[in-house]
């Protein structure tokens, strides 16, 4: 499921453009209909970010992936918006930061 993109080196590219690279750690939770789709590979090709899977569990019911994204802030934000539009639940590594 997880492939780092071959064509981009986001951190270097971002630095060259003057944009600040950043690292973002996320938990992705996929509904069953998306489990067979190579979403992380697609993400790595659509956006100038590098992807690094740190933990994953896939069953018939749900796909759970802990993912590190490296790249320019705007690219990471766009990648998250794309994932959410697909129906992937995107949480920070802390999961629920807002408590009652």
């Amino acid at each position: 499921m997880a492939h780092a993109p071959k064509k981009t080196k986001p951190a270097a590219k971002a630095a060259k453009n003057g944009a600040r690279p950043q690292q973002t750690r996320l938990w992705l939770m996929y509904p069953p209909k998306l489990i067979t789709r190579p979403i992380i590979w697609e993400l790595g090709h659509k956006f100038a970010v590098s992807t690094n899977v740190r933990q994953a569990s896939v069953t018939d019911e749900i796909g759970i992936v802990c993912l590190e994204l490296d790249g320019e802030r705007e690219q990471i934000k766009a990648a998250i918006a794309w994932l959410e539009k697909l129906g992937v639940n995107v949480e920070p590594v802390e999961i629920n930061v807002i408590e009652s």
């Binding site: 995107v90 949480e91 920070p92 408590e99």
Partner: peptide
């Protein structure tokens, strides 16, 4: 939206050197 607010709070917690009670102090 709640999810955006949640992610921003995580980002703020990571960026500022504060004791974020339910993040870095968790």
């Amino acid at each position: 939206h709640y999810d955006e607010v949640n992610r921003l709070c995580a980002e703020i917690a990571g960026k500022f050197g504060w004791a974020f009670v339910n993040v870095n102090m968790r």
